[in-house]
């Protein structure tokens, strides 16, 4: 890590703490708001909420590790504080690294290299923030009207909304599965193994009423997919 990268990281740390602190504050507000509504209208029992919290925590662990490799690569190039700030707020690690690379190419320097001065790094951070900010501006403008339209449609006797959710999901899932599955035999094996494992555990939970185990479905399926993919990779090379 160059001195310029170290210097900028020591400055950014304070801003990173502020930003990540705010992310936590916002999540806490929405959590409390939902829980208060639930308490008033008794949609879920206390046990169900506890169970949902546990299920969400377990389900978040596996996907969070999808960024390990890319985060480590980012740290070696742009330092820990900037990586922490950019991966924890507004962005995702791979997108941020891609943007940082585009910026350094535009400036004619190597990301994290000798020519990557404090001034160049400032432009890179500007680029990373700029690349994510319009997503939020889009949300700022469109979420409220979208919500109103959805509520209006949901009030109809035969609403399109349930079909909208399913078509959106399968439009996404189908394409995402093909995009990843066609990358190689090991990726295809990962999809197939986790699909079959999740199906088996879901059926087992539904038939046997194993509610506690149902919190672990995603984690179990991820581990099965990763193990099978690694075995396939070692066989096909």
């Amino acid at each position: 890590m160059t001195q310029a990268v170290k210097d900028v990281n020591s400055i950014v740390l304070v801003f990173a703490i502020l930003l990540i602190g705010y992310v936590i504050v916002q999540a806490t507000f929405f959590l409390r708001h939902a829980l208060k509504f639930n308490e008033k209208y008794k949609l879920f029992s206390k046990e169900e909420i506890k169970d949902a919290v546990q299920a969400s925590a377990i389900s978040s662990i596996g996907p969070s590790f999808s960024i390990v490799v890319i985060v480590l690569a980012m740290i070696s190039l742009i330092g820990p504080a900037v990586t922490w700030m950019r991966s924890g707020v507004l962005g995702s690690a791979d997108y941020e690294l891609w943007i940082a690379d585009i910026v350094s190419t535009q400036l004619g320097v190597t990301l994290g290299g000798e020519g990557f001065t404090e001034a160049a790094f400032t432009v890179a951070i500007f680029g990373m923030v700029l690349a994510s900010a319009p997503f939020m501006v889009n949300c700022l403008i469109t979420l409220k009207p979208l919500d109103k339209a959805m509520m209006k449609a949901a009030k109809k006797k035969n609403s399109f909304i349930p079909l909208l959710g399913m078509t959106a999901e399968l439009g996404m899932m189908g394409y995402w599965a093909l995009e990843n599955g066609t990358k190689g035999a090991s990726s295809t094996a990962a999809i197939a193994a986790s699909l079959l494992t999740a199906m088996a555990v879901v059926t087992w939970c539904q038939k046997g009423g194993h509610t506690k185990l149902s919190n672990w479905i995603l984690a179990i399926a991820l581990i099965a997919g990763m193990i099978v993919a690694t075995i396939v990779q070692s066989i096909v090379g």
């Binding site: 995603l218 991820l222 990763m226 993919a229």
Partner: peptide, 22 residues
């Protein structure tokens, strides 16, 4: 184990498809 992390996303896709199928 580090290499296995690269298969988190395809494994995630399989599990999500399973939820929809179920």
């Amino acid at each position: 184990v580090i290499e296995a992390f690269t298969y988190v996303i395809p494994s995630l896709i399989g599990a999500l498809l399973a939820f929809r199928i179920s």
